[in-house]
Write a protein that binds this DNA or RNA. Structure first.
Length: 195
DNA sequence: CTATGGATTCGCT
DNA sequence: GCGAATCCATAGA
């Protein structure tokens, strides 16, 4: 079972929607993707690729189906899947998984029994994703690997992305409606308290 | 070279 | 509800 050849060479938000329901395997664990966000290139001010390639973001301009892993808030890792039309840039941020296999491994890495992968940082910790995975091929067996999943029985719904302050009108966040593993958004109150 | 702040999470109050 | 943790890419000098 593998992805169609050009699956990742389409508009980023299209790939994002179809990645919901796919599986991610690594470190003896497997999870089902239940929440993602799309980040495009020069036309998306919320994207790391907006201002052109930099040492960090150049991977988003390169070969699709690679991993883009970066450090967020100096504390958390975030895993993205590079996906864009040829000549453009973009990646899909994986925000939440439903644990399927290797749950004990995930619990050990997380140091807790629940909330294993309901959030981009939690997901990486649970699956053992490291910064060293940046640039690796997600279709190559043996490492951090993506697999197509069965078409989700639940409905995939869209809404605004989380934790950004620009382009909030774009509905580039996709998740499985009603799935309990989708991350909770408690930024409304936090955000008010900020500035 | 230094300063800044972020696609967040957790623990304490 | 609130603040600390923690470090790298980026911007600016």
């Amino acid at each position: 079972m593998s992805f169609p050849a050009d699956f990742f060479e389409r508009d980023t938000e299209v790939v994002a929607r179809e990645l919901v329901g796919c599986h991610l395997c690594h470190g003896g664990s497997r999870g089902r993707i239940v929440e993602v966000e799309a980040y495009r290139g020069h036309d998306d001010p919320a994207s790391h690729a907006f201002r052109g390639p930099t040492p960090r973001s150049q991977i988003m301009f390169g070969q699709p189906a690679r991993a883009y892993v970066y450090l967020s808030y100096g504390v958390h890792r975030c895993l993205n899947v590079v996906a864009h039309r040829p000549g453009l840039a973009g990646a899909v941020l994986l925000r939440a998984l439903e644990p399927i296999e290797g749950i004990e491994e995930m619990r050990r890495r997380r140091g807790r029994v629940d909330q294993l992968a309901s959030g981009p940082g939690r997901l990486c910790q649970a699956m053992g994703v490291e910064l060293s995975h940046d640039g690796t091929d997600l279709l190559e067996a043996g490492g951090l690997v993506l697999y197509p999943g069965p078409t989700p029985a639940e409905r995939v719904v869209a809404g605004p992305r989380i934790g950004i302050s620009v382009a909030t009108e774009r509905e580039y966040r996709f998740w499985l409606e009603g799935n309990p593993h989708v991350s909770k958004w408690r930024g409304a109150s936090r955000r008010r308290a900020k500035k």
